[in-house]
Design a protein around this nucleic acid. Sequence first.
RNA 1: GGAGUGGUAGCUCAAUUGGUUAGAGUACUAGCCUGUCACGCUAGGGGUUGCGGGUUCAAGUCCCGUCCAUUCCGCCA
Length: 598
Amino acid sequence: MRKAQVGETVKLSGWVFRRRDHGHFLFIDLRDHYGITQVVFHQERPFFDAATRLRYESVITITGKVIARDAATVNPTMATGDIEINVLEITVQSMAEQLPILVDGMEESPEDLRLKYRFLDLRRDKLHKNIILRQQVINSLRRRMTDGGFMEFQTPILTSSSPEGARDYLVPSRIHPGHFYALPQAPQQFKQLLMVAGFDRYFQIAPCFRDEDARADRSPGEFYQLDIEMSFVTQDDVFEAVEKVVHGTFVEFAKKQVDDIPFKRITYADSMLKYGSDKPDLRIPIEIRDVSALFAESGFQAFKSAVAAGSVVRAIPVQKIADKPRSFFDKLVEFAQSVGSKGLAYLVWTGDAAAPVKGPLAKFLTPEQVASLSSQCGVQAGDAVFFVCDKKDVAAKIAGEIRKKVAKDLDLIDVNVFKFAWIVDFPMFEWDEENKCIAFSHNPFSMPQGGMEALLTKNPLEINAFQYDIVCNGVELSSGAIRNHVPEIMYKAFEVAGYGPEVVDRKFGGMINAFKLGAPPHGGIAPGVDRMVMLLADESNIREVIAFPMNQKAQDLMMGAPGEVTDKQLRELHINIDPKIVAEMKAEAAARAAATAG
RNA sequence: GGAGUGGUAGCUCAAUUGGUUAGAGUACUAGCCUGUCACGCUAGGGGUUGCGGGUUCAAGUCCCGUCCAUUCCGCCA
């Protein structure tokens, strides 16, 4: 609706967004998917009284004349602010009751209410725009993939449970008592089988189902991946293809500066050392250092003996914080302890020639050691360095947490950029402390670097995989790999992880058989669509870019899922629910009803 | 499963050290207002302070338990 239409008689439908009742006339801001238009009711119309009683969010259809507003009454903040509509006829399509949440909200409502009345929440401008953005991003991804020569496929939603990975969502079979389908955690095996079938460029906007607990960037139940697989490619080929799509999409929609391609590549080992994480936030201008060697020689007994026993010391240099009050440092020590550190030592560079550093550690270090720290950490007067000492992986993690915490508290994060990186060379295996054995650290289908020879000759814990992640602003966007398509290497890799060939045949029979009948080398990746949209919409919570998300406890409060089913349905599925469980469920339901009633 | 934070009117919040009848904005209802645009003005209705127990002359406030929400850890090949 614009100035060009002045004089026309138009019909407009929408929701009553705002109301301004002046007695002799009434303004209503009518909102639809496309925007807001001011409509005017005059007292002499027969429907005037009824119009004044329209509650917010009622749905009406009006017919009226488009009128140019006087210069004095133009509203420059509205796209339609030049005009208004003089209402001649009105139909009330739907009168709204009092609203549980406000649609015209600067105010945030409690999330459980927003989820229960999601259709109202989705009327709010911000969420409405997020969902539109989501659709545009998906469209753009799809177009870029198709233009890049990829074919879109559908793969089954009802499939078999896979032994590795997250918990499955199971669906009982009616025809086969005691047997279950599983919803796919990802179309992993199907896309690999499509490569074996000779389709060499696969993609799918694929729903993935994992029964795991939620996080701010992890919606429980289902999420979507831009699932990609390619045949006859190297890791670099995959990077090139994916970078083009991800970079192009981010440049198209981002309001921030996007890293140029090719994206930076960081080895897993380097990332753990410098950033204390395998999904580093590269916006933070702090790099962690290893100073174990220096403390092995120092007079600080606690660190010295720990290093002798195999621990490491990690240094976190922070610039220009010498003037922070003592409480700042105390709070950081407290934070370190809350994330599992035994303590947090630190040194502050004073700029005083006689006593260049102060802090709990100062008296244990020689001037030479202090000088060495200065150069290793790149610090000068006014800066400080924090020290964490623990076993390698623990120290890395704690140092990483402190790096993030300091950056947040000191406001060191540039919020106007998207910093991308590939994390490469993930270890193929890791030591499983709980079960005291060697286990796959990521995907068992990844090709070990060095192939069969590496598996036969190297320490398994030193073998890397052709396994990679793409990370943006500290968010893991996706993970992928060049796959292991050689049956002998597959059997060997599983053997290293403690599984005999019969396990491979039983659990992955479909795929291993396929690999015995002519399989191309192949690899792929699967960037998380929800997370990309979350970053592009500048939201810190993934539920803000999902139309109908579940809550943290994996419930759909609007639809009432999960819910009970009838005894007949259970009988058909050969499911017997333990009476004890039923009693517990009923008690819980009663408690919940009591709580809700109150 | 564990830790932190929170729960007061439909919604957003306030209520001093434990002390009068738990207040305000908004929404809702009624009335007034000829140009507003988050219109304005007047009045009214609306509360098991999440639930249960305890301490006290007195509890929204303190203590214990419990439920709910959220964030984080565990988990997420």
